[in-house]
Simulated scan of single mutants.
Amino acid sequence: MASIEIARQAGACYGVERALKMALEAAATPKQPVHTLGPLIHNPSVVSDLAARGVASAETPAEAERGTLVIRAHGVTPAVVADAEERGLTVIDATCPYVKRVHRAAARLSEDGYQVVVVGECGHPEVVGILGHAGENAVVVSDADDVARNAYAERVGVVVQTTQTAATLSAVVGALAVRVRELKVVNTICEATAERQDAAAELAGRADVMIVIGGRSSGNTRRLAEICQSRCPRTHHIEGADEIESSWLSGASLIGITAGASTPAQQIERTRERVEALMDA
């Protein structure tokens, strides 16, 4: 009989739980409509649940029209907040405090005369928000190979998307170091992200099968899946427990489960129950 093990660090982080709490508290006051600016977190199940509770998603402040606008955990640019306030919306800032730390670091580097390099996924909502604090000449690089595609000032300051890996940051810094005169690095990887990545890697190194739970648009979940895949070829990234197939578990002695930072505990439990049911069938 196969055993099931959940990674020692997995699932929703403080920033996600905080954002959900703030959105639900806003929804509990039925005096005005409540919108989140884009999906509150990268988890379709949670977003659907919020919609059922009356919290809709608006892509822009203009789309929200009136009422309360909740800024999602990924954060936004200062211009977006200003736009919402000018439209008379009540703004609730649910930006993760760790993302706020990146905003402050990027702003300080820019104010001190550094060209800011953001290590992260170009176009990701968190990265777009960081760029809004990083000065006009800021650039985004996704990995060490991407470094050569940009021109740099003599003084460069580096910040990193909170859900990136330490290995990616290290590789980018190494590639930048030979191109600039002065390099200042502020490691803004979230501690919770690093803990989840380390725990997933440890479990994947022992497991026969790994199941990674989280939205397919979630950058941190995709990175967990990549880390697990490198150590356990039979890794499966799912959004919901009903996706699991019995054939995935065939011949496995240890089935590992981990989850991205936008995955609530109940989704992890439903996955464990689904695996148990398939093993007993």
Rank of each mutant, 00 (worst) to 15 (best):
G120N: 02
G120Q: 03
E121M: 03
C122G: 09
C122A: 10
G123I: 02
H124Q: 01
H124Y: 05
H124P: 00
H124D: 01
E126W: 04
E126A: 01
V127E: 01
V127T: 07
V127C: 02
V128A: 04
V128D: 03
V128Y: 00
V128F: 06
V128Q: 01
I130V: 15
I130S: 01
I130K: 04
G132F: 01
G132D: 05
G132P: 01
H133Q: 02
H133A: 03
A134H: 02
A134M: 04
G135E: 05
E136L: 12
E136H: 08
E136V: 07
E136G: 05
E136Y: 05
N137L: 03
N137T: 00
A138E: 03
A138H: 00
V139G: 01
V139L: 01
V139E: 06
V139I: 07
V141R: 08
V141F: 11
S142L: 08
S142V: 07
S142H: 08
D143A: 13
A144T: 07
A144G: 15
D145W: 12
D145A: 15
D146E: 09
D146M: 07
V147E: 13
V147W: 13
A148S: 15
A148K: 09
A148L: 13
A148H: 10
A148G: 11
R149V: 12
N150M: 14
Y152L: 11
Y152C: 09
A153K: 10
A153R: 14
A153W: 10
E154S: 15
E154F: 05
R155I: 12
R155T: 13
R155A: 15
R155Y: 11
V156G: 02
V156M: 00
V156E: 04
G157D: 10
V158Q: 04
V158D: 06
V158H: 03
V159T: 07
V159Y: 12
V159I: 11
V159P: 08
V159C: 11
V160R: 04
V160T: 15
V160Y: 10
Q161D: 07
T162D: 09
T162M: 12
T162E: 08
T163S: 14
T163R: 07
Q164S: 08
Q164M: 15
Q164E: 15
Q164I: 09
Q164A: 10
T165F: 08
T165K: 03
T165Q: 11
A166W: 10
A166R: 15
A166F: 12
A167W: 10
A167D: 14
A167V: 14
T168K: 11
T168F: 07
T168Y: 01
T168W: 04
T168A: 13
L169T: 11
L169P: 09
L169K: 07
S170C: 09
S170L: 12
S170P: 03
A171W: 09
A171H: 03
A171L: 13
V172G: 07
V173C: 13
A175K: 13
A175C: 08
A175V: 06
L176F: 06
A177L: 11
A177K: 15
A177W: 03
V178E: 15
V178L: 14
R179M: 12
R179A: 10
